[in-house]
Computed example of a mutant assay.
Amino acid sequence: MNLEPLGTPEAPTFGLDTFGDVALHPDGTAVSHPEAIGQVVAEAVVAEQVGLDFFGIGEHHRPDFSVSSPDVVLAAIAGQTSRLRLGTSVTVLSSDDPIRVFQRFSTLDAVSGGRAEVTLGRGSFTESFPLFGLSLDDYETLFSEKLDLFTQLLQERPVTWEGTFRPPLVAGQAFPRTAHGLTAWIGVGGTPESVVRAASYGLPLVVAVIGGSPARFEPLVDLYHRALEHYGHGTRPISMHSPGHVAVTDEQAREEMYPHQAAAFTKIGAERGWPPYTPEQFDDGAGPTGSLFVGSPETVATKIAWAIRTLGLSRFQLKYAVGTLPHEQRLSSIRLYGEEVVPRVRELLARRAD
């Protein structure tokens, strides 16, 4: 498994995440799924143009997100880029087959010239379980077993393995092989068990901070480091995924982001029995230590630098596609992030190091 291009707390890398959120046209109508996927490809191309390091696409199976097969979209992006690392945020391993996941991403690694990554997780949505004939009663066991198999496949040697949900493997092999190993991360939402499990396999960690403060993850990051030591692994990269939006001023960024953030979280909340999203929740998240990285380049850069120092991050991933936020506003946010935010973060980190 190749960890070299993933950054360090001293020299972090910077990426973007999207779920292929279905945006709005200027007239307020929703774009189609084919249009939304085309927009994702165009946004990734701009991400490379402005010097970003990573582009991640999440897997979902619901109408407000257009991407159910991230590896296919990432392959399209690979054909239009040359440097950008390409991965997921996340791949729902619980409802997929580990061998097929490895094969798809080792293929992506080949067509992208070694730029593929995969972030494995259980996902925050559960639509894939009934869609693929799986029971939510098996939610935890499915992920545990499939992750165990997948980590063995990463060794790219014959695998003999037995579990509950599939026939045993006897010297099974997954092809194609990669040139330098496939980079795999574990995405976690904040449970100690998930953090320890990632450490037990020696896999790098992505923490999804979509509520509260990044600082509340400090004990989990400490636990991860202690668990890595316990299991005999060296240091591994840690990344953070959080939503945000960059505009010329704080006021513009908040005005552009809020209605789309509120609509998305109110819709999801109605499905899960939560109350409607409020301006107060948005203001809390947009504060100096909240989970929303929204504002002017200086505001967002200051907050990212703080998060990197607080958690010792090797990478920061901005979830820039906020619900129905229009494509042109997303493109503007990407440009400001790459051209102004990231250089300023590096400057702030270097100043602190001196």
Rank of each mutant, 00 (worst) to 15 (best):
V159H: 12
L86Q: 00
P237T: 06
T289I: 10
L136T: 10
E229Q: 12
V209Y: 00
S124Q: 11
Q49S: 08
S69P: 07
T178W: 02
E218I: 09
E256G: 05
E127W: 04
A263I: 03
I37Q: 10
A179D: 10
I77K: 00
V206L: 12
Q155S: 14
A321P: 06
E117W: 01
I186G: 07
V345I: 05
G244N: 11
D137G: 07
A11T: 04
P214G: 08
H245W: 09
S314V: 01
E145D: 10
A307T: 08
G123E: 14
G15D: 15
A44E: 03
V248R: 14
T249H: 13
A42M: 03
R122M: 15
G58S: 06
V345W: 01
Q317R: 08
R344C: 02
P204Y: 05
V248F: 12
T88Y: 02
S333Y: 04
M240H: 04
M257T: 08
P34Q: 14
P5Y: 01
A247G: 10
P63S: 10
G338H: 01
Y337N: 11
R254K: 09
E347A: 05
R236Y: 10
R335S: 11
D21C: 14
A270L: 07
L349K: 02
D71T: 01
P98Q: 09
F129Y: 14
A199R: 03
T183Q: 06
L228H: 07
T8R: 00
P12A: 06
G287W: 12
K319N: 13
S32A: 15
L203F: 01
A30Y: 13
L147V: 10
H241N: 09
A199D: 03
V206H: 05
P70D: 14
G38T: 06
P259A: 07
F175C: 07
V206E: 02
F265P: 00
G211W: 10
E10P: 00
Y231D: 12
S144V: 13
P219W: 07
E347S: 10
D137Q: 10
V196F: 09
P26Y: 11
E145L: 09
G28C: 10
R157F: 11
P259M: 05
L336K: 05
Q39N: 08
P5M: 02
P9I: 02
V46C: 04
E340K: 07
L86K: 01
G285H: 13
A78W: 00
V195M: 05
G113M: 05
G51Q: 00
S112G: 04
V209G: 04
T164R: 15
H180C: 06
E4L: 01
D284R: 15
D64S: 14
V195T: 13
T235R: 14
V206R: 03
P343V: 03
E48F: 01
P130L: 04
V196A: 12
R100L: 09
P176A: 09
P158G: 14
E251H: 10
R83H: 06
E328Y: 02
R254N: 05
D71A: 03
E127L: 06
A36V: 05
T249W: 14
F316L: 04
E193R: 08
V72G: 02
V195D: 06
T178H: 03
